[in-house]
């Protein structure tokens, strides 16, 4: 076996974790649900709301069912990793902090061409929007950089700064690898040894459909929607414990569940163009309700 290119995929994660932990971020673990991007982790989507300061960093496995290519495309995956940093309020030197992380990864800005290109971000299902850039290194997009302006339809005050590293892309760049499956994972295994088989299986599953399965997916979506609304319909006062407990987090779980089910239905071509808007609207309504509930909780800073 030829020498593995450095740094390994997991070394990159370790480096980023060490770096951002040194900048005051709480190191969290991936959220234990299927999501399309690190932004959906409640540590970002909900914590970006309300006045309470917050700093966190974490890896988030992200799923994009429609991008499945059976492991045959060198650049596309239906499951990949994002490294997410969120800081509220956004510090003045956030760009410099970010560049510092690149240096830490061994990327020397003096021989590369690093630039910030306008790329405003919008998530129709989350009812969220922000202004920012995609960061290019020698023509390759290696990160997203966003100042959150709105989540669930609510203004973010203060504004959070969000940095998202596409870890596979970044690793391919750092290792000089042209096929994602060739990435050095940990010095002994390559990315294909870890993920190729699961890519093939999920690609098949993502696109495999029959009437029964379609009906079930639809039912799951509706169940999640109903449960989300049920949870949020409960009074703030909990008679069992005798405390005021707004259940924003459990409700939000149902919201991301609905969002992911929508993604699967979309990948399977179950949703027509006109229905699409309707589904997006329904998930956005859930996100708005969750955001509204979260804004009543201690974690948002409402009850300090």
């Amino acid at each position: 076996m030829s020498a593995m290119p450095e740094p390994s995929f997991q070394q990159i994660i370790l480096t980023l974790q060490t770096y951002w932990s040194g900048k005051g971020c709480a190191l969290l673990q991936p959220y234990d649900m299927e999501v399309g991007a690190g932004t959906f982790h409640p540590a970002t989507a909900l914590r970006a709301l309300g006045p309470k300061p917050w700093k966190a960093a974490y890896v988030q496995p992200s799923r994009r069912p429609a991008d499945g290519r059976y492991g045959e495309n060198p650049n596309r995956l239906q499951h990949y990793y994002q490294f997410q940093v969120i800081m509220k309020p956004s510090p003045e030197d956030l760009q410099d902090l970010y560049l510092g992380s690149l240096r830490e990864l061994g990327l020397d800005p003096s021989v590369h061409d690093i630039r910030f290109l306008e790329d405003d971000w919008e998530s129709p299902t989350l009812g969220a929007a922000g202004l920012g850039w995609e960061v290019w290194c020698d023509g390759m997009e290696i990160s997203q950089f966003t100042y959150f302006q709105q989540v669930g339809g609510f203004e973010c005050k203060p504004v959070s700064g969000e940095i998202t590293y596409g870890l596979e892309r970044l690793a391919m760049f750092l290792q000089g690898v042209e096929n994602v499956f060739d990435l050095n994972f940990n010095g002994e295994m390559r990315y294909r040894d870890v993920f190729l088989e699961s890519e093939r299986q999920y690609s098949r599953w993502n696109f495999s459909n029959d009437a029964e399965a379609a009906k079930r997916l639809q039912q799951h979506f509706e169940d999640a929607e109903t449960e989300c609304k049920r949870i949020l319909g409960q009074p703030d006062h909990d008679t069992d414990s005798g405390h005021e407990i707004v259940m924003a987090y459990p409700a939000y779980d149902q919201c991301i569940k609905a969002s992911h089910l929508f993604n699967i239905m979309d990948a399977r071509g179950m949703i027509s163009v006109s229905q699409r808007q309707n589904y997006i609207q329904r998930v956005r309504d859930l996100a708005r309700l969750c955001a509204e509930a979260f804004l009543k909780t201690t974690d948002s800073g409402a009850r300090d």
């Binding site: 003096s110 023509g139 042209e178």
Partner: peptide, 18 residues
Amino acid sequence: DMETEDAGATIRRGNERV
């Protein structure tokens, strides 16, 4: 947006790869 010591060789390689 950079002048580099290697006269852009790294930058060229990266861009061509993308």
